[in-house]
Design a binder for these strands. Structure first.
Lengths: 256, 256
DNA sequence: TTTATTTTGATTGATTTTGCTTGTTTTTAT
DNA sequence: ATAAAAACAAGCAAAATCAATCAAAATAAA
């Protein structure tokens, strides 16, 4: 068995079980432990796996809070979210009013607002967004109350819906989990979907923040049909053919 | 199970629940407590989590500027506030409902609730308290919305007042800036005073959390007369003569 | 074929990991 | 306040795993 052949086999076996022991690899390849270890060392140096005492495990990107341990891909996706948020931020004019929902991309926007001096009126149902935006003393901040979903820290339910009704804002920035022409905008949780829809209703201009991975995906609950929105900000990896489809519905697609 | 594999599992489990106990990890990984503790130590050193007695919690990237403006206040008499909060916490029964206002002492109480498993229904107008309490998955959390005062991160104003009206809770825990027999409970901001009063109205039992430094002080705005409350939790530095005065008004004063 | 290079497997001592035990600290209950 | 219980850190020794070294084997180049 050639060295490369053996390394391929190692990777195959590793990906099957997410883990693999040196012993199992010796059996499978009929090579000595020393050879296997050398292979594992090599593969680790080439960022193909992570060695551990007794074997190896697949590279995982755990830790949502620790950004340094993010894998290449999710780091990149994060970079894209930041660019999307930055574009949205630059669309904001002085003294404009906006509503922000809960989500990772909108949180990025919140960070930009929080670290700026822009005068804004912000409405949000997200505890996290509130706290972030509060760093900017020039913001007039309105928190939407209601039952709090603990995993997203967003207020939902009737109270949130009614509270939102009282506001009228210029722009809405909404994060979603799925975007398609046929199924429109979708998200996994029904109550959050309703809140997001309500946010759209109270805004004169609706902008969706969604990186390319959200397109052609359908989540469980519909927020609104695609015709309900005015603009999507996404990243440059979105195919031109998809962009043009949305243009037919009078939706401005901004790729950054 | 390899060490790295086990640590990945720990992080996965941790991120699912925001908190995890050593015992649960022993069960899940079939490793000894010593091994788990070593792993937790390792992960803490690598800034992946925060250890606690009995387990670990996710790293909260607490809001920075706010944290600073808080920190000076909360550093002062911090020990006392923690003890006061702990006493309040032990007064809570399973499945009880309570309302918490914004403040450093109530935030200490929120931390205790957040790090516990107690089943509770919590109503609060504080973004910070919300986020802290949300660490406890057994809490049903209701956020009070409204205009957010940026320096305290508390919702105030008509919206907050109306939202509070909808609730009826067992216990209210209120922080104040001044406590006297004649002027009652006082605080510097009028709108916060009104919210605090509203919180008292919707609770069947009102407990004031105030360290000894708040006594014989009068702040600008009155929250409520002293007769309106049922109990004060304070620290042991409060003079006995003062304690007895409040007893005449049927107010239980607990010094811890 | 001869020579150089790479790869491999075996050996050895070093390192890592682990569970146990000890006594200490922290937490909880009384 | 005090006692009991739980959780902890530190040290230890056994087992597993590893890195380093070196010589033999395989491969490539001359």
């Amino acid at each position: 068995m050639f060295p490369e052949e053996r390394r391929n086999k190692i990777m195959t076996m590793l990906l099957e079980n997410k883990r693999i022991s040196v012993k199992a690899l010796c059996e499978a390849t009929q090579a000595s432990e020393a050879t296997i270890r050398r292979d594992l060392s090599y593969l680790e140096q080439h960022q193909k796996l992570e060695r551990t005492h007794g074997g190896a495990v697949v590279l995982e990107n755990i830790s949502l809070t620790q950004e340094d341990s993010f894998s290449q891909k999710s780091l990149k996706l994060h970079e894209e979210k930041r660019r999307i948020a930055a574009t949205a931020f630059h669309m904001l004019e002085e003294n404009e009013s906006l509503v922000l929902d809960a989500g990772t991309t909108t949180l990025e926007l919140a960070k930009l607002i929080g670290d700026s001096n822009k005068h804004l009126v912000v409405v949000t149902n997200s505890t996290t967004v509130s706290q972030t935006i509060a760093r900017n003393p020039n913001v007039e901040l309105y928190a939407i109350g209601g039952r709090v979903r603990l995993n997203t820290l967003a207020a939902v339910g009737n109270m949130a819906m009614e509270a939102l009704e009282r506001f009228n804002v210029r722009k809405a920035f909404i994060g979603v989990n799925g975007v398609t022409i046929d199924n429109g905008l979708t998200t996994p949780d029904l109550e959050e979907a309703r809140v997001k829809y309500q946010m759209m209703k109270i805004a004169s201009e609706v902008t969706i923040l969604a990186d390319h991975s959200k397109f052609k995906k359908v989540a469980l609950c519909e927020i609104a049909p695609i015709g309900r929105i005015d603009r999507i900000i996404t990243d440059t990896q979105l195919k031109e053919t998809i962009v043009s489809q949305y243009s037919q519905y009078d939706i401005e697609v901004i790729c950054v």
